[in-house]
Amino acid sequence: MITGTGITKTFSRRGGVLGGREVPALRGVDFAIEKGGAASFIGESGCGKTTLGRILAGLESHDSGEITIDGVPMSSLTPRRRQPYFRRVQLVHQDPYSALNPTRTIHQTLSAPLSLRARQMERAGTGRPRSWIGERAEELLSLVGLDPGYVLPRYPHQLSGGMRQRVVIARALTVDPEVLVADEAVSMIDVSLRLGILALLKDLRDRLGVSVLFITHDVATARYIGTDGELYVIYRGQVVERGPVETVISAPVHPYTQALLSAIPVLHGLETPGEQRVVPTEALDASRHDRGCLFAPRCPFRTARCESERPVLGHDGGTPQEHACFHPEARTVVAVPVSHS
């Protein structure tokens, strides 16, 4: 189990004559991912969801807050001793084209982390025969739905995008991770192949007990990974709504969540649009607004209080999910299928 409390991260961007500008990427984010569970982070690009994934995979450091992995607070460890913990969190990149080394065959790509794993197990007294690496590579490729005989001797450029993404997942599995962080893992894959990758991630949850942290802008895919999962809606580095996937989608209470869900195209003919769709007001330079509620400049329901005070995550108004809004109101914004009678 992995938890985070009050994770903050600020990037300083170099700019103009007046010196740097501080850009907060994460403003005190709390989360918890159960073993075998699913958590999805949704939001627009630049909202901080990718940064969070990278922090969890140990690729980026955070400024303050505490991450605990299996009950061990990371701040209590030296960077070197932290590494094995972060290795239990593996990142599946968005771009399957740059995620694999073009000069190495799939066999080489998989055997490097596997031989590392073999050495670790030897040290732990559970030594494996030499043939284990090859066997395990085949086993993992079969697990992700690929034909090892075909894939192993090939270079990445000889595989399709969907196959590459499966190889990337197999590589992440070489170190027996507890959490897979899938950052927009299907956005660069052909539409007809996306569901296959999503189904694989879902299947890995069931078969290996791997938890999946799903980072996406496409809420429907988050729903496919696990209807039992937790949904986090992030706006400009702050979690504005958090709750069970189905609850947040069917009855969102934060205006930002409502705007985000309202923006999802409706398949007219198959679906009828939600009745209370929310269209955010367009504000120039909303990103410079730092007082009060972060969403206030674009919020159609804002009041004077929203401009001066920042709401915090909670169950105000007795909603089943947590939210950070002074005026929570459940609205039906999502399109519903046309019933065939």
Binding site: V191, S192, R194, L195, L198, V219, A220, T221, R223, Y224, T227, I249, S250, L261, I264, L267, L270, E271, V334, A335, V336, P337
Partner: peptide, 13 residues
């Protein structure tokens, strides 16, 4: 097939 392969926000996922 294409339509069936798109996860939706409502209905049976």
């Amino acid at each position: 097939g294409l339509l069936a392969a798109i996860p939706r926000l409502a209905g049976d996922i």
